[in-house]
Nucleic acid binder design. Sequence first.
DNA 1: CCTACTGCTAC
DNA 2: CGGAGTAGCAGTAGG
DNA 3: GGATGACGAT
DNA 4: CGCGTATCGTCATCC
Length: 743
Amino acid sequence: MAEDNVGKLNIPKLKDAKLAGTRFSESCTLILTKGYSAKNFARGLGQDEYGAFPLKGKLPNVRGASPQQLLENAEIQNIKNILGLQFGKSYENVKELRYGHLMIMATKGHDGSCIIGMLIKFFHYFWPSLLKVKGFMQMFIIPIVKAYHKKTNAVLSFYTTPEYVSWEKELGNKATEYRIQNYKGALHSQEEAQFYLADVDQHTKDFYWFDHHDDDAIEFAFSEKKIEARYQWLQRPQACTYFDSKDKSIRYLDFINKQFMQYVVADLQRSIPSMVDGLKPDQRKILFYAFKKHIIHEIEVAQFSADVSDDSPYHHGEASLVGTIIGMAQNYVGSNNINLLQLNGRLGTRLMGGKDHDATASGRYIFTQLSPITRYLFDKDKDDEPIPHYLNDECQSIEPAWFIPIIPMVLVNGSEGRGTECSSFIPNYNPRDIIANLKRLLEGKAVVPMIPWYKGFDGDIQKETTSKDTLYTTKGYFITEDKNDPTITELPVGTSTRDYNEFLASRCGKDIKAYTARKDNTNNVHFESTMTEDQMNSANHAGGFLNKFKLTTTLSTANMHLFGSKGELKKYDTPEQILEDFYHLRLELYEQRRRALVRELEIASWLLENKVKFIDKVCEGDILLFPSRGKDEWCAELKRKRFKSLPSQAVDNVEETDEKESGTGYDYLLSITRLSFTSEKIEELKQASDAMKKERDEITKSKSESLWLRDLNALDHQLDEEKYTLDERIAKIDFQSSHDVDE
DNA sequence: CCTACTGCTAC
DNA sequence: CGGAGTAGCAGTAGG
DNA sequence: GGATGACGAT
DNA sequence: CGCGTATCGTCATCC
C-alpha cells in the first residue's frame, strides 16, 4: 500500500501514518504533540491511520510576521508538508490532503491553549476554508486531575481546574473517599496510554465553525487592530469559564473565549508583578515555601525547587523555577538591590549579566536560603497575619495573593516582564530613599521625587533633561590618566562585562588601538584602552567617549504596569505614585494589625485583672474555696460577683460575656494554683496586670503610624548592619565631576 | 591470587 | 534532548 | 523609517 | 551541562 503514498516524507521525528497520502488519507489523523511522550500512544491507535509529529516549543504567531519569516520556520514548513498543503490554495474539503484530521494533543494548562491558538490562527490565516470543514481540526484532551474512589475504584477525570474545584466543593467532607492524583505529565506510562486508548472518542473533540462569529472571535483574539479592545477586556475581572468536557465538539468561538483568552490572562498574570509585594506568582510561591519551611539554613537549590513544586498543585518546568530562585538570590550590580534569598556559590555574576550558569544543571551544586534581612521586610515578629489574602478559591491556589512587606519591594528590586497586551518595566530604587519618603508620608509631608538607584553601581544615573521626563540615563565611568588611554572602570546598568569585552574587541583597530581587560574579580570592571589622537578626536566628535563607546544605557519609567491590591491591572506614571498607592494600603493594614493587637491586649489585660480580683476576694474571705461545690454553682457565683468569663472561641465582643455558657469560661479562675496565693505571687500578678494595662493603654492610644515607623527604623538599622549606604555613590559622583571626565 | 584494565549501566 | 563525564561493578587478561 | 533584537517566564 | 524553538510589548539601536 505504500506505493501510492504521495511522496515519502523525509522529516525527522515524524511517524507517518501508513495510509497517509493514499486514497484512504481522509481517514488518517495526524497527531501533533508537545515532546515525544505520545509516540507510543499513536502507535496504540494504529499505525495505518494515525501519524504523530512532535512539536518543539511554541509555534510562531502568524500575526504581524512576514510571509518570509513564516516560510523559513521549520515547524510551519513541516506541518504544511506533512499535510500536503500548498500556500495560496483554497480547500473546500480534505480530499487532496495527506491527512483528513489534524489532532492536537493539548498539554494541560494554559500554555497548551496557546499552542492550539497559534495553530488555529495559522490555519485561519492561510487556509480559512479548512476551519469550516468540521472535524478537520481536533484536540485530544488530557485531565489535570483524576479522582479515584477508594472503595469502588471508580475514576473521575477533570479537565479544567474550575470543573474540579466545583466538584470538590459539592462533595464537602465526602472528599476523603477519593484519592486525588494531580497530573504532572502526559501519557508517560503504558498504563496511561491504555486508559486513553480505551476511550479515544470521549477525549477527542472536534472543532467546528458555526458562523461569522467564529471569525470575529479569532479576529478579536489575534488581530493587531483589536489591541485596544483586548486591553479593555483585560481590565474587567475575569470569570473562570470553561468548556464542558462532555461536549463532543467545540466551537472555535468557545475555544477562543473560554480557553485561549484564559491563557492570555494567565500569561499576563505570571509576567506582571504585584504593586504590593513586587513579586510574580512563581517568586511568591518560592518565598511562601521558604517562609513556611523556615529555610534559614542553606538548602540545595535543586531540592528547594522540587519542594516548592510539590507544594503547589500545578507547576511548570523545574528549570524555570530554579532560574527564578537564582534570580531572587542574585546580587551583582544591576540585579537585586536587596536579594530576598541568599546564594552560596559563585553563580550569577556580572561577567555575563547573571547568566553564567545553566539553571537545570547547576541547581544540584548550589545552595540557597532566606536572607536575614528578608524578615525585616516581610512580617517581622509575626505581628501581621503571615498571609493576609488568598486567591479566590475558584482558581485553586495555595499561595497568597500577595505578601505585605513594610516597604514597596517592587521599587527596591524593580521588575521586568512581558505578557500579552501589556509589558512592564520598573527600575530599581534606593531602599533608603523609599524609607525616607514613607516617613515623610507618615508625618503628613509630601514625597520627594526619586531617581533609580542600583546597589554597588559606581557610575551615574541622571534624569534625561533633553527629552521626555520618563527617561533616565545610566553612565559608566572611565578615567584618562594618559591623554589618549582611557581606562574604563564602570559599565552602565545592564551591560555585562563579557558583552562589553566583545564590543571592545570588535572596535580594536578601528576606534581604538588596543585594550586589555583585567580579570581579577568577576564583579570588577577594568578595561585599559589605548587610542591614537585621531581616534580620540573622532570619539569627541561623536558625542564623547561615553557615547561613542556605548557607556550609557537608558531606564524608562514610561511603562510601569502592576497588579493592584485587588488584582486589577494598573499603569503607574511615577515611582511616587506606586509608593503612595502602597502607603495607603499598608497603613490600612497596620491599622488592622493595631486593632487586633488592642483586642488581644484587652483580653489579656482583664484576664489578669480578674485573676487578681479573684485572689483578693478569696483572701478577704468573700469567696470561699471550701467546701467543694459543683462547677455550675461556681460559675453562678462568679457570674453574680461580676467576673468575666472567657468566651470559648470568639475573642470579639469582649463586652458581652453572657452569651453562651460553655461551662469552661471560668476555668482560668478555677484552675489558679494554690501557689498563686503566696504574697510574692500576688505581688507579681498585680505588677503584671498593671504592666499589661499600661501596654494596652499605650497601644490603644498609639497610632498605626507609629507601629509602622518602628518597623521602618528596625529595617533602617538592619540596612546599616549590612552596610547599605549611599556614601560610595556620593563619593564617586563628586570624584567624577571634579575630574570633569564627561566630554 | 591480586592488580589493571575493559566494557558496561545508571546517573 | 543528547553528549560528555563518572562512579561502580563484573568480567577478564596478565604477572 | 522600517527592521531587528534584548529583555524574562514559560 | 550546554544546546534549540517560540510568545509576548516596548524601546533602543542599527542600517
